[in-house]
Amino acid sequence: MFASCADPSTLEGLNWLACYLTSGKHMAFYQSFLVVLALLAITAPAALLFGFGGAMAARSRIWPLRMVGRAYTAMVRGIPDIVFFLFVPVAMDQGFEWLRHKVKCPDWTDPVRQGSDFVVCPAAKLPLSTSPQWAHETYGFALAVLAFAVVFGAFAANVLYGAMRAVPRAQIETAEAYGMTPRQSFWRVLVPQMWIYALPGLSNLWMILIKATPLLFLLGVQDIVYWARELGGSKTSIFAYPHPDWRLYYFLGLLIFYLMLTRVSEAVLSRLTARLSHGQATLAGEAQRKAAQ
């Protein structure tokens, strides 16, 4: 980074530290914080989408669909998320490649499973082996997002399902009395009102999601845990900046990062609750109305 860092072995004290903390590896470490934030930003809406689908399926009048919805939400309750992360991404990766293989290479005669090898035709590879490195990294990241969205979507489905049932029955009855079809009353009455009931559960889910992000490194994404381990381990003089085992300090840094993230989230979510309570038929909404008078 700095010109004076050309020969780290001559540096001492603060200079050494300044150069050490700005090495290329540390830059990758700092960037990985952005990876974690990006994962959160993309996964949260994706999980909400999965959750909405799951909740709608669980409410469905069609029996098989209802069973699928219920099974989806029950599954995540029974199984530790870490177990999911250990095989769901591999399964999804192979599943996608197999589908592409079927579509793109119908003439391929070799079996896809050869012993323990999983072989699809080159055109079906995801991403293609000719793709640049960033494509591979993006694909790996997308798989991670999908895995997170599937797992946390099941939690969100649970929350949303409960919220839909919490909307006062009288509201739907009124909508029906006005002659709305079930579809109309669902979208125009139920969905706008359910958010305030879902918010406590969804805030909780957001906190859970934040705390699940260290599992990213299980999915092969080079996240903050990966770099903290890599940077913190003791380094011999084969490295430009030899140092003893510093993992404790790096992980303390991660701890502080997560504590700050939860603090900020708590503050934002409580403001959001206040906003959403506005004009709702709940205790909080009532209190706001009284205060305004």
Partner: peptide, 8 residues
């Protein structure tokens, strides 16, 4: 509650 168990 504010930090991941993994890190703890």
């Amino acid at each position: 509650r504010g930090s991941p168990l993994f890190i703890q």
